[in-house]
Write a protein that binds this DNA or RNA. Structure first.
Lengths: 393, 393
DNA sequence: TCTCCTATCTGTACCGGTCCAGATCCGTGG
DNA sequence: CCACGGATCTGGACCGGTACAGATAGGAGA
């Protein structure tokens, strides 16, 4: 973790807004709760005119209470409530203040995947949790739209989080062009002024590979994602990974397997989805020389391997050892429980939130121009039931 | 589903923005890619001056290409690229246009829970998916903040989705006061001008109850959530539900159990969490007269009951039948697989997205003021392995 | 040749705030 | 009695666009 403590509080305080307690402000719509049909919009000026002060003073009544006397403030707030004024317009304030209180989130595989992929979901949960105290909202940006609206270009934000995206996207390019502070997670940054949060995948993958070697396995299959590529055996195990994460994991595995002279075969699958995984598992387990250990890109894939093994009458770990990745909930609920490489998603989310806060702080004029954060999140092997000694030949 | 087709496309087209393809626009920062330290900001006016046209024409070059000749537009775009102008400022545009392209999401149990609770996650995934084509971004609003920033009050949005929230919250009040179009999901609306998407829980729960009755069970436990209340046996099964969803389910169960004269006991748990569920399950299964069937608020709870039953040496469904709720992934992955009440989360998400689109459309000036949507999402019983005939006494 | 229409631009008036540099007024210390 | 500092309040400029009602000019139709 390379993060240093940072006083976000100061930024927040600066933007401080003190409103009267909402409960006391009376009903919506008018003095006696009638649902008035919006007549000419109520603005600061409306209230200023009614009270007989300048517009600025009304603004201060809401945004900088220390700038005017308590009584006058009371009068202004009362009049505002009376006129049904709900407080400074967020859009106008954004423009004037130059800050939006929003962090964009780009995730190429559609924002929906951020909820459906358990690993992504847990990560974002942690980010959301860590960011909540700052009051920043997380804005999930659809990467593309049928219409002409493009969120990455059109939504105001103070910074953006880019998670496991295809880099060469319109949305990505726009985020860059806008000059927003960016934090790349699980992905190579496309610009050097961006912060990064990366998983320390190689040692984790290496540990997994060492584990099966220690158990006596010599014929090992790698199940890797090759986003979009057709499933099948990869020509060269050493370069079978496609995409940052996949590549790192393959390199970690190979860093141990190659020197040990293990017999390695890599099987591609198109996406980290159940269907793809089952298909790839079938390919791997029906190879002429069946591997006795399978190292998988994810727990989801590992579970698919377990099920296919069963289908084929193979026992896990009796005939085949299986290692997952991520240590998702799945790895603990299925039978057998999965040996896997754990990544601390909570720490990763927290580190990301910090990186975002710091990136925003650094953006502010007059801020010391430090280097952007580069965080490496540790991984470690967790041995459970799905791995065992290689079967005697 | 009460939704009617709606032409969101029209709205999007109206707000159409046609930019030159980002790939062609040259590098960021300046004509030759240098990372220029922001000199006086480049605005429409800068370009207008340089090209020698009015600012409005430059605006049109970006936002309404049909309003000027192709050549002039080319010139303008070229000059813009040269000056490093990245396109109209989103915040300014928002203010001028009066629309933000963002939908707020309020979820009292912290935005993190939107990712962690599998049911919520799947629901939001579906909402995000259905909303993606419109280009609207989903903004997750932290309900409270330590600082003075309050997203529900300060983030510009075109509408807000309120999901299973505690109604009496500052955040909620602000959404109302702002007069935003609101869509309430799984929750009683607090205002009559809001749309609602509710689960048709009673028939589903009733079916679950009927199912165990049909299997001969006469002593039935209900495991309900009573947000925040201490765990334990509820004084009156009929009113054991706390919160909209919980209440509906209890009423559904009771609508069948009461007339049948079943012996019903309700056990409260504080929250829909694993720990609470295990505790409640222990209470239920160690009652002096042990129930032979347990109807649960969720699959998570049902699974907890299954595990506690095992701990106590009881077989499921031999000694105890267990019925879950929601038909989450869990209900299919655990052993035994769970009998449960299915809710179609994808349909629910889709209906919500529609309701949001329609609410936004209705908001636009001149739109026909129709009634807000009120959608009821169907439920149905799915019988699996966790229920069986009542044990002979 | 004259009129009218359409395609292109331009000007002005907002959109609804915030920032910052004064201007006032008042009590206080010298 | 007067300069001075702090607490209040005000004015104008600015944030960066968009909407809409003209103004202008070139070409079609009569």
């Amino acid at each position: 973790m390379t993060t240093r403590p940072i006083d976000v509080g100061a930024a927040v305080r600066r933007a401080a807004v003190t409103y009267p307690d909402v409960q006391e402000s009376g009903p919506v719509g008018g003095p006696d709760g009638r649902q008035e049909v919006t007549v000419a919009r109520v603005t600061l000026q409306t209230i200023a005119d009614k009270v007989g002060v300048s517009r600025m003073t009304v603004s201060n009544a809401f945004s900088r209470p220390d700038q005017l006397s308590a009584e006058l403030r009371e009068t202004i707030l009362a009049t505002a409530a009376e006129l049904g004024y709900v407080g400074p317009d967020p859009a106008a304030r954004q423009l004037a203040r130059g800050s939006s209180g929003t962090v964009g989130v780009l995730f190429t595989q559609s924002p929906a995947a951020a909820f459906r992929d358990p690993i992504a979901a847990e990560f974002f949960a942690s980010v959301a949790e860590s960011l909540a105290p700052t009051g920043l909202a997380l804005s999930l940006l659809p990467a593309a739209a049928d219409g002409d609206r493009l969120a990455a270009r059109d939504v105001p934000m103070d910074a953006a989080l880019v998670y496991a995206c295809v880099a060469d996207t319109h949305a990505m390019h726009w985020l860059e062009r806008r000059g927003l502070p960016l934090v790349f997670v699980d992905q190579d940054p496309t610009t050097d002024r961006a912060a990064t949060v990366l998983l320390d995948d190689r040692p984790g993958a290496a540990a997994a590979a060492q584990h099966v070697l220690d158990l006596g396995h010599r014929r090992v299959a790698l199940l890797t994602t090759a986003w979009g590529l057709p499933p099948g055996v990869a020509p060269d195990p050493a370069t079978a990974g496609v995409g940052h994460v996949s590549r790192e994991r393959v390199e970690g595995w190979m860093s141990v397997l190659r020197p040990a002279g293990a017999d390695v075969v890599a099987v591609h699958m198109s996406d980290n989805l159940e269907e793809d995984a089952l298909e790839a598992a079938r390919v791997a387990l029906t190879l002429p020389e069946r591997p006795t250990a399978v190292l998988c890109f994810s727990d989801l894939v590992a579970w698919a391997v377990v099920r296919v093994a069963r289908e084929l009458g193979l026992s896990v770990p009796g005939d085949v050892s299986v290692v997952g990745y991520d240590d998702s909930a799945l790895s603990r609920t299925v039978t057998p429980t999965l040996t896997t490489v754990r990544q601390d998603l909570v720490a990763k989310g927290r580190a990301t939130a910090r990186a975002i806060e710091r990136a925003i702080a650094a953006q502010r004029p007059g801020a010391p121009t430090g280097e952007p954060d580069h965080v490496l999140v540790p991984t470690r092997l967790v041995v459970r039931e799905s791995t065992g000694p290689a079967p005697a030949r």
